[in-house]
Each structure stands twice: as structure tokens, then as C-alpha cells.
Amino acid sequence: MAEIVFKWIVFFIASILSIFSSVMMVTRKNPVHSALWLVVTFISLAVLYFLLNATFIAISQVIVYAGAIMMLFLFVIMLIHLEKGPEEIGKMTVSRIFAVVLTVLLFVEILVGVYFYRAWTVKPEPMPFGDPKTVGKLLYTKYLFPFEIASVLLLVGIIGAVVLAKRRKM
């Protein structure tokens, strides 16, 4: 019983923290602050993955997203001196308000989709345990070919980034 209460508390703290930090991420003017708030969002999502028994995904979330990808973002922001963005925040133009209304409509649409999904009526069952051993076994047997394709994709990404960022000689 105490464990259940503890899990609920962790769930609410992590979800509220992720919502709060993503709102902060969207509204900050300085891109460096935005990137740091996004790291907070990623780490609280990793906590939620741990709650859902997806330990492998949670660890790779911390390493890949909060570590590698956000390091890349911060590096580029500092490389091209973006601390003063080309931004005017807080100006409520008509198109901006219209865009937000459209997006809230999208949210309502997703909610309807979730409501009519059978998740509301499905019998609650325990989450399958996605530890590294199970996921790795599945990756290296049934999904071996997509795994290899993903490695080729990463190689192409590296080559593309190097070719694009190389300074052209005139």
C-alpha cells in the first residue's frame, strides 16, 4: 500500500514538473534557458518511464536526449551567439492568437481520441517489464534488420552533418 502511494506521489510530481518546465521552455526568451528547461522536461519524462517499468527506455532517455541531443543544441546556440534571439515575445498578434486557438482545438481532438480509445474500458493489467535484457533480446532477434537500418541511418546523419557544416572554399 505504501508503495502505491509513493508511486502516485512520484507520478504527480514528475508530471507537474514536466508540464511546468515545458511551458517555461516555450515561453523563455533566451534559447539557453529554453534548452535547460527542456533538459528538466526530459529528466522528468525519464522518471515517468521508470514508473511504467520501461527502464531501458528511461536510461536511454537520460543518455541520448538529456545528454547527447541537448549538448548538441547548447553547443550550436553558443556557437552562433543566439543569446539575444530575433524574437519579440509577448506581442499578441491576431495570427498568434488564432494559432493558439487552432492548437487547443488539436488538443481537444486528441482528448476525444483518447476518450474513445478502449483504454478507458480495458481491464487493468500490469505493465510488461522492459528491462535492458528483454528489450535487447527482442532488438537482436526479431527486430535485427530495422536495428541495422537504424545504424546506417545514424552513419548517414553523421556524414550529412559533416558535409553541411564544412566551410566551403570559394
Binding site: 536511454s60 550550436v76 528489450v135 541511418l153
Partner: peptide
């Protein structure tokens, strides 16, 4: 979970190429 793994892979490649394009 396998799908999430591949989404992460694609996101990493996308971030590398996209940020190079921004530079």
C-alpha cells in the same frame, strides 16, 4: 518500447543534420 528506441535514433540523426543546416 522498440518503436521508442527507433524514434530516439531518428531524433538523434535529425538533430545532427538539422543543427548543421541551422549553422
Amino acid at each position: 518500447m522498440i518503436f521508442v528506441f527507433f524514434v530516439m535514433t531518428v531524433a538523434a540523426a535529425e538533430a545532427a543534420v538539422g543543427l548543421a543546416i541551422f549553422v
